[in-house]
Design a protein around this nucleic acid. Structure first.
Lengths: 361, 361
DNA sequence: ATTTAGCACTCTATTACTCCGAGTGCTAAC
DNA sequence: GTTAGCACTCGGAGTAATAGAGTGCTAAAT
């Protein structure tokens, strides 16, 4: 949108050579982290023009807002606007090598079968291959549906409540009754009541009112079952919290772009899971790159987020992405993320998708 | 032990005044992080002696190996040996204020009922109150016993295997059978076989041979059940891994003692959970302080670990502790850790202990 | 009209140097 | 055994000089 605005100012066609220069500046800057001077660029452009010409072009690019100088006698540094253009138009994605694919496949394969594990494993693997911090969210919890609820006795006076969702997740919680001993028929009754009331319902639709009215429906037993009902409610709350997996925070410290303070600020921000999920879930479907200044968060100022959605049964499900300094290696990282999203979608469909269709519960 | 060795060298009695001076140096150094000079100490010792006298004493302490100078004309910095002595003999623990206790109690109370949650909550709370990184290990997984195993159908061709331990932990894993549909009787049979074979056994005793022989005992069904058996085995492996909760890593970055590199090294070390558990579990029972150089790990050189065990039914169970720079506020941190350990022991006994006794499974 | 060479100019990072002050160790007096 | 006094050491702050990278502009070349 900022982009469109600029377009309106007349730089729709940036000129073949300007584009090449800008792309070269961005790439060099990404590689070295240092301002790029005109002489350096002569070589990159195959010595077809002199440094003076490049200087002129760069001066114009600077005037247009794509480049800026840290100080008078330094090279040029790309502005966020330049990154934006580079990512949207100029960049050539580097497709993955076969080794890369194989390695990623191998890493993901370790978690085959367990969706929750898959998500955390993917996050870890992504952090490792990219060298940035990776973040992955599980399917937005509130829309997940209850598939079944089980109540198992654990000791004479306590029971485990087990919640199964249609996304293949299992969660449990132990509750203790106020009596010395609770008989099996009560647990059975409880189990039946829970299933009758909540099977097929989205977790987000199960609130305190619903749970309470269910408790009331148990009549004389409702009081005795109160601890179990509370536990069930907490279980639903827990499960509907969007699960989020964050890995490779250390990679941030490794990056020279982050000094101690900035690294700390960013890491502090990353520990606030709600904020992170907020940003990720509010992003439009498809690959999306958020450059520091674009997100409103000051903590993310020197950083970029690249993320996309993976799918389940063709529908967008959770997000997977990375967070790193502004000068990330977008050309390599983006294809990796896309590959991860595809691979995860495929694996998830294998694990869950089929069941979903064949099931008639 | 190093201590004993030094004692043999003749400084058993360090002299009242030397002790006071050393303690003061350590405490000042802990507070400021800067070398301590003789003039500063005059005030601390109530102006009873002159700086020259203190200089003499300090020279002797330096000769004994308790103090050293970063350079000729700087104050003195305590050596690890001095910290050792300070912690073992000189320090006055600062007991917790009532507010502190209340706050800690409140934080732990949030997790009442769920042992796993209690552990992670305690870790978080400890990190927060001390301002260092906190680490907590759950009961050593291998000695935990299987209490019960449940097999629940999840879809026509997949099932969840649920493992309950006597430490109150519930873990589950989903497995998929190679057929389109598996009938309930098979699942029941599987459940019975698993329970017969493994109930009451320690997780550490359940290895591949045991699991395989159990599979064989299922005769004609063993092939069909293979995925479930594999899943069960993995479940046992997972569950017997010592769970470890690490919090407040960011606090390390906040500490001026750690520059970017050292912080990174330490944090990298902390992510290697096996190493961390290794150190924690190998520590003798009771409160223990490991000063940087004492652990053989070079990554821990500038850091200290303070840890103790919490108990379950009177027996040492897991560990809880903190990791921070050498110049931690031991006098305050140690009582806090001890309080956490006591509080956790109590809560765990309430949750689990009673069940263990009354159960007759 | 564009491109290029040449040059003056600007600004930073580096190095060398000086100086200040904190703190010591030693000696001699108390 | 303690203290005052003093010479000495050494790191850190501040300053000045220097080198170098890179620019912008002008005038010539294509």
């Amino acid at each position: 949108m900022l982009n469109d605005f600029r377009k309106g100012m007349g730089n729709v066609e940036l000129g073949e050579r300007k584009q090449r220069i800008l792309a070269a500046v961005v790439e060099l800057y990404i590689r070295t982290g240092e301002p790029v001077g005109s002489k350096t660029l002569v070589g990159v452009l195959d010595n077809t023009v002199s440094s003076a010409t490049i200087r002129n072009e760069m001066a114009e690019l600077a005037a247009m807002g794509y480049l800026e100088q840290p100080h008078t006698s330094a090279g040029r540094v790309p502005t966020p606007m330049a990154f934006r253009l580079y990512i949207d138009k100029l960049m050539c994605k580097r497709s993955l090598s076969q080794e890369d694919r194989d390695r990623i496949d191998a890493m993901l394969m370790q978690a085959a079968g367990d969706p929750e594990r898959l998500i955390s494993e993917a996050s870890e693997a992504l952090a490792e291959t990219t060298g940035y911090a990776a973040v992955t969210t599980a399917p937005s919890g509130r829309s997940v549906k209850v598939k079944r609820i089980e109540v198992l006795r654990v000791s004479p006076c306590s029971a485990a409540i087990i919640l199964m969702t249609d996304s293949g997740i299992l969660r449990s919680r132990i509750c203790r009754f106020d009596r010395d001993e609770v008989d099996g028929s009560l647990l059975q009754m409880l189990s039946r009541a829970l299933n009758d009331c909540f099977c097929g319902h989205a977790l987000g639709d199960i609130g305190l009112p619903q749970v309470q009215s269910m408790a009331v429906s148990m009549g004389e037993h409702s009081l005795l079952c109160a601890p179990a009902v509370t536990a069930f409610f907490q279980l639903v709350q827990d499960t509907s919290e969007v699960e989020i997996s964050l890995n490779g925070q250390l990679n941030i410290l490794r990056h020279p772009d982050y000094d101690n303070i900035h690294a700390r600020d960013l890491l502090a921000f990353l520990t606030k899971r709600e904020l992170l999920t907020g940003i990720l879930t509010s992003m439009p479907t498809g690959l999306r790159v958020v450059i520091g200044s674009e997100s409103k968060r000051p903590e993310l100022d020197g950083s970029s987020i690249i993320a996309t959605h993976y799918k389940l049964g063709g529908q967008p499900d959770g997000s997977i992405g990375i967070i790193g300094p502004l000068r990330m290696d977008y050309a390599r990282a983006i294809p990796k993320i896309e590959y991860f999203a595809r691979a995860m979608s495929k694996m998830l469909d294998e694990i869950i998708g089929i069941d979903r269709q064949t099931d008639n519960y």
